[in-house]
């Protein structure tokens, strides 16, 4: 089972999925981001350090979150993807719109 830890740092919600980010767990991530946006926290960082496998559904949940946060005037950034997630970002060309930051702090501070 994938678990999700969340933490609010300043005005940013940091989500830390632990395990697989796939068809099964992606809806949870989507819900976490949606409720954050609904509560007015529109800056989101997904810390991928604990994600050992991410598929297109996991990527889809983050794209979804990116759209939702941007529509609300915020943004979604990702930090610390492992090799497998980096490969998925690269194959799909999504690093163009989801730039992987080396640390959560960098992701929060990014313009």
């Amino acid at each position: 089972m994938t678990s999700f830890a969340t933490e609010t740092i300043g005005t940013t919600l940091v989500v830390r999925p632990l395990g697989r980010l796939d068809l099964v767990s992606a809806p949870q991530l989507r819900d976490i981001i949606a409720s954050s946006v609904a509560n007015g926290i529109v800056g989101v960082v997904v810390d991928l350090h604990g994600v050992d496998f991410m598929d297109s559904s996991g990527l889809g949940a983050m794209i979804n979150g990116l759209k939702a946060t941007r529509q609300a005037g915020g943004n979604l950034r990702i930090a610390r993807p492992a090799q497998q997630a980096l490969v998925v970002l690269d194959l799909t060309m999504m690093q163009q719109i989801l730039h992987p930051y080396a640390s959560v702090e960098e992701a929060i501070a990014a313009p």
Binding site: I63, T92, M93, M94, Q96, I97
Partner: peptide, 9 residues
């Protein structure tokens, strides 16, 4: 030569 998937932007 590659680009983004459909449905992103």
């Amino acid at each position: 030569v590659r680009g983004l998937p459909l449905g992103i932007d």
